[in-house]
């Protein structure tokens, strides 16, 4: 690490960031921090402003208002100083269509002072067998892995990976997770965007949930899922609910419970985890002549948190 860089302080600090495309507000007063040496997930549905936020941190876009500091630098004004120190994985593309996979990786390596050994890196990412394949003929997952390799090859302090596992099969996904965890172990800060809850829950030290360009919740996976309430009940019934069912159920359960209808036959109930809630729900079903197909009680998942915060499902 260069001596003049502030080795302390957050890796990323975003304050009151506003970004617009024409009339459309993409990021609306967002503030968040990323601590050094951690994996931080920025989670949200498509169009939530994740990529725009990342691209502002990478120096591609100038904030409309607000401030962004990355490794203590202004990503736009200090771009030349910052870029060698960060690794960037774009959501898609980033290579010539006719370039061979290894050729591209070697090229990016040659732009850095102390690149990783590209043979080792391609081996780690399972790119060995497609090293001579032109980029346009790589599978989606191989293109993603090459994109990740390109982000890592310069031995950055901080990597931004935009939906790193999109298009990967489950095996490659697992391998990528392990790699990201190894990066953290070796002292690299990782910022990733995802709309996969399991990815954020599995990997992240800190999760920032974004919707409509705003931060709606932050915390460790445990903090987010334990929350103020302690239990979640998922109710799935055999026939569609009658009209007004959520309101009626809410009335039956009392003021400390939230009821959200997910679709015609399922509902999510969040409230105090005591036997009475479960009992009240089954009594309500009997009274309204609906037949439960399943009634499950469990800890909240990130999905539940998101649903509770936005009233919508986080569609992948």
């Amino acid at each position: 690490m260069p001596a003049d860089s502030p080795a302390h302080g957050p890796a990323v600090e975003v304050e009151d960031l506003v970004m617009r495309y024409g009339d459309k507000v993409a990021v609306d007063g967002l503030s968040l921090r990323v601590e050094r040496g951690t994996i931080t997930a920025v989670l949200g549905p498509n169009g939530a402003g994740k990529t725009t936020t990342l691209e502002t941190c990478e120096g591609y876009r100038r904030p409309r208002s607000g401030t962004v500091r990355v490794l203590g630098l202004d990503p736009h004004a200090d771009r030349r100083e910052l870029l060698p120190r960060i690794g960037v994985m774009l959501q898609a593309g980033g290579a010539w269509s006719g370039v061979r996979a290894m050729e591209m990786l070697d090229h990016v390596a040659s732009l850095h002072a102390h690149p990783l050994d590209t043979a080792m890196l391609s081996d780690r990412l399972g790119l060995g067998e497609c090293g001579r394949t032109p980029y346009r003929r790589l599978s989606g997952g191989q293109q993603q892995r090459l994109g990740l390799a390109m982000a890592l090859v310069g031995r950055p302090e901080l990597v931004f990976v935009d939906e790193p596992t999109a298009g990967m099969d489950p095996q490659a996904r697992r391998a990528t997770w392990e790699l990201l965890e190894e990066l953290r172990r070796d002292g690299v800060t990782v910022v990733l965007t995802t709309h996969h809850m399991d990815e954020a829950e599995h990997l992240a030290d800190t999760i920032h949930i974004i919707d409509h360009g705003r931060l709606i919740a932050s915390g460790s996976p445990t903090e987010l899922t334990s929350g103020g309430r302690s239990a979640t009940i998922r109710l799935v019934v055999t026939r569609p609910f009658p009209d007004g069912a959520p309101e009626s159920l809410r009335t039956a359960l009392g003021p400390h419970t939230e009821v959200t209808q997910l679709d015609a036959v399922s509902m999510l109930i969040t409230g105090p985890a005591d036997g009475s809630t479960l009992g009240t729900v089954s009594a309500w079903c009997e009274r309204h002549d609906v037949l439960p197909e399943s009634l499950s009680l469990g800890r909240r998942t990130l999905e539940d948190v998101f649903l509770e915060l936005t009233g919508r499902e986080l569609v992948g």
Partner: peptide
């Protein structure tokens, strides 16, 4: 000895 220990820099 860590594989990915940061050592950034431009050529």
């Amino acid at each position: 000895t860590s594989t990915f220990a940061p050592r950034p820099g431009a050529a």
